[in-house]
Simulated assay, not measured.
Amino acid sequence: MLATPAGPAGLPTGPGWSFEVKWDGFRAMARSERGRLRLDSRSGLELDDRFPALRDLAGVTADGTLLDGEVVALVDGVPSFEAVADTARHARAQLAYVVFDVPVHAGDDVCGAPLEERRDLLAGLDLPGCAIRSQVFADGPALLEVTRERGIEGVVAKRDSSPYRPGARSADWVKLAHRRTRTAVVGGWRPDATSSSRAASLLLGAHDADGSLRFLGRAGSGLSAALATRVAEALSAHPAAAPPFADALPATARKDARWCDPQVVVQVAYRERTTAGVLRHPVVMGLRDDVAADPWELA
């Protein structure tokens, strides 16, 4: 079940709504398969081998329980997407699985039960040390302010009576982030002037409803030396002879660019989109291979 982005009015308020932290990590469903933990991303990618520190969750899911949650890496108590995306940094971060729903409990499908009942079932589970129950708050505006002060991504409002709709985006869950984020494909890149094995900037794109690759802009901020090296390595595996974009690119974007098939997906944060659809002040947060890129039409 996916949350709907909040509109201009912000988060819903009033009776029947409660609020949780919006975590900055990898969304994953946890279940058991042949006695071992199975973590699946939204796109169906198996994540369990990537996060062996979470294997104790198998004891919770062994009876047929299915958990919905987020794999997060806490650095000084604050979720870090860069840390959870970079397996080499897990040793320096506290890896955890934040559980916020239980669509199947002990083999029983409880998707039709109201959220408040599923939360009661979740509260009764004996979770291992690698798992954290998502806390529930009554005051959305206060939680929004606290998350802003602490550098946490945002807040999700949830209707207490809502059923669980697998794979669907529902207005019963509404998310509000302090900064906008999205996934994008890379259609070209510029190597670093001092080392061609590192990317200095990326040309971002998204496919529209017709399947055409549209230009989202160029991003260079956020590319640390380690991330720039990993991105360049990934992009070098998909070279292209010509720009894959349907749009005419500005000369500044084309200069010194290396083209690639739009196979590599990155997560970016940005302030807003222009009327032409270009991202303002995009920052590269990390590589994503667990989800597909967001469509062009996503605001």
Rank of each mutant, 00 (worst) to 15 (best):
S170H: 02
S170W: 02
A171G: 12
A171H: 08
A171R: 14
A171D: 12
A171I: 00
A171E: 09
A171W: 00
D172H: 14
W173E: 03
W173H: 09
W173Q: 12
V174F: 05
V174D: 09
V174L: 05
V174A: 07
K175D: 07
L176E: 10
L176P: 00
A177R: 15
A177T: 11
H178T: 06
R179V: 13
R179Q: 15
R179Y: 08
R180Y: 01
R182E: 08
T183R: 12
T183V: 06
T183L: 11
T183Q: 10
V185S: 10
V185E: 11
V186A: 04
V186P: 05
V186Y: 07
G187I: 07
G187S: 08
G188Y: 03
G188S: 01
W189N: 00
W189Y: 12
R190M: 08
R190G: 01
R190D: 03
P191F: 04
P191T: 11
P191K: 03
D192W: 09
D192I: 02
D192K: 03
D192C: 11
D192P: 01
D192R: 13
D192H: 15
D192S: 14
A193S: 13
A193L: 13
T194C: 12
S195A: 15
S195M: 02
S195D: 15
S196R: 14
S196Q: 12
S196D: 15
S197R: 15
S197E: 14
S197H: 13
S197F: 11
R198A: 12
R198C: 10
R198K: 15
R198N: 04
R198Y: 10
A199N: 03
A200D: 06
A200N: 01
S201Y: 05
S201I: 01
L202Y: 02
L202S: 03
L202C: 02
L202P: 00
L203F: 03
L203T: 04
L204G: 09
L204T: 08
L204P: 10
G205S: 05
A206V: 07
H207Q: 13
H207K: 12
D208C: 10
D208H: 08
D208E: 06
A209M: 01
A209W: 00
A209K: 05
D210E: 13
G211R: 07
G211C: 08
G211M: 08
S212L: 12
S212W: 04
L213S: 10
L213H: 07
R214A: 07
L216G: 14
L216S: 13
L216N: 05
L216K: 11
G217D: 09
G217M: 11
G217C: 12
A219T: 00
G220L: 02
G220Y: 03
G220C: 01
S221G: 07
S221A: 14
S221Y: 02
S221M: 03
G222V: 06
G222Q: 07
G222Y: 07
S224H: 09
S224E: 08
A226L: 12
A226P: 06
A226C: 04
A226D: 15
L227C: 04
A228F: 06
T229A: 15
T229M: 08
R230L: 02
V231I: 15
V231N: 04
V231M: 04
V231G: 04
V231K: 03
V231Y: 09
